[in-house]
Design a protein around this nucleic acid. Structure first.
Lengths: 229, 229
DNA sequence: AAAAGGTGTTTGGTATACAATTTTACCATT
DNA sequence: AATGGTAAAATTGTATACCAAACACCTTTT
């Protein structure tokens, strides 16, 4: 007889028990992305471990994980710091993300199922009907969902993984952009072109539209005040 | 004036003060890449920490670092295992690496200095003069050096970083290929075309040549026996 | 004999104590 | 007052002990 009858529910959802390190990594990632832990912020292992109610060992592993994602800079014998990428570095990230999404677009035209196309259309429908005064976070999340849906349709695990990493590194930059009304209009127009190309299963047009869209984002990023930190 | 005679295992790399976790990560990465720790091999934390003469804490951090690079699979409450990617997954990795190198080629044509071009030419010179019976590892290292030099010339830190990660994940596959004489001829021919395009600073031709080259590698990989482990 | 269940050993997960390093603050010297 | 050095405090790096979960083997039960 099973000792733990409650676990049956979890089994159905395939929920694996997470280690404290993984939980802490997720929580830290969230704190960094929403800006509660701002760029450049030095992180004291002791203080953080107390605030998260865990010991330093799992916290250190979480920090190392985020360091591998380049969300945290860690130097030997020094306090880890929340990454504070320069404008040039952010532009570099945009260039790579553009190449990744261009590949995703090409693969999407070859591999995506009808269901995945329908899902993408549905996301875009919701997206273009948002009022101008909708919450920035809502607009932003839907924007991200659109791009993620394309990557999912590309059916390439490695690509999805790397794309997610770059999304995290670019989170702040793209979130800042999404607050501008001007940027929202551009986004919807460019998403429409991307969706058209993907539905037509035109690989090169899809790749071009996605590259253009990311380069718009990169250029828009350049306009924002680089002094902010 | 060393007080602790315990930790003198890797003093040859002591130019920079590295933590034991970093040293262990490098050592483990090497052991995995050269196949001393074969794909699928379960790793006992206690046994490994004894063999590397360190305690489990820094070893665990090293394992997490390699897990972030996808060189090791780690599941909760189970032994970490050396990653054993399927043929399909390796093909996915090739697709992403091709997109990354295509971007690197484009950026190279815009940003590379004359010195970086000269360096690339020099590498290719050495490469094409290798005799057929040269050591596989020597041929392989020079092959890698060629690709890395292109990425360096692209002057994009994020791209270089991600490219290095994918190189590690594809290490075994590409090393196996480099043992075939037929593949060597193809490599030299395709490198010549890449070099031509880069020297002409033709972005699209460079990107196309690099994509073609990586797709050759991907196709060649498919020919190799997938049963080997 | 086969299957279910229990027990002991092995292994990863976490906390804590200690060592080594860096940072900070203070004092002496210029 | 500015500067340099040195000691104390704070912080990271490492080792070890303990806990809980997983696995293998054996016993028990049918």
């Amino acid at each position: 007889m099973k000792k733990n009858g409650l676990a049956n529910l979890d089994d159905d959802l395939a929920v694996e028990r997470m280690s404290l390190a993984e939980i802490a990594a997720e929580r830290l990632r969230e704190l960094i992305l929403i800006g509660k832990l701002p760029p450049g912020q030095p992180l004291s292992e002791r203080e953080l471990s107390e605030r998260l109610r865990i010991s330093r060992t799992p916290l250190r592993e979480a920090i190392r994980e985020l360091a591998a994602e380049r969300l945290i800079d860690v130097l030997p014998n020094r306090r880890p710091q929340v990454a504070d990428p320069s404008l040039e570095h952010i532009e570099d990230l945009f260039d790579v993300q553009a190449a990744l999404e261009a590949l995703a677009g090409r693969l999407f035209t070859k591999r995506a199922t009808q269901e995945q196309i329908d899902e993408l259309v549905a996301i875009h429908e919701r997206f273009s009907k948002f009022p101008d005064d909708c919450e920035p976070l809502k607009f932003f999340r839907t924007d991200m969902a659109f791009h993620s849906a394309i990557v999912r349709g590309a059916d390439n695990v490695a690509l999805a993984d790397t794309h997610r990493q770059y999304n995290a590194a670019l989170f702040r930059a793209r979130f800042m952009s999404s607050r501008q009304l001007r940027w929202r209009d551009i986004t919807i127009a460019e998403h429409t072109e991307i969706l058209d190309a993907l539905c037509a299963r035109d690989a090169e047009r899809s790749a071009a539209a996605l590259t253009t869209h990311l380069m718009s984002g990169r250029a828009n990023q350049r306009m924002l005040d680089p002094d902010a930190d």
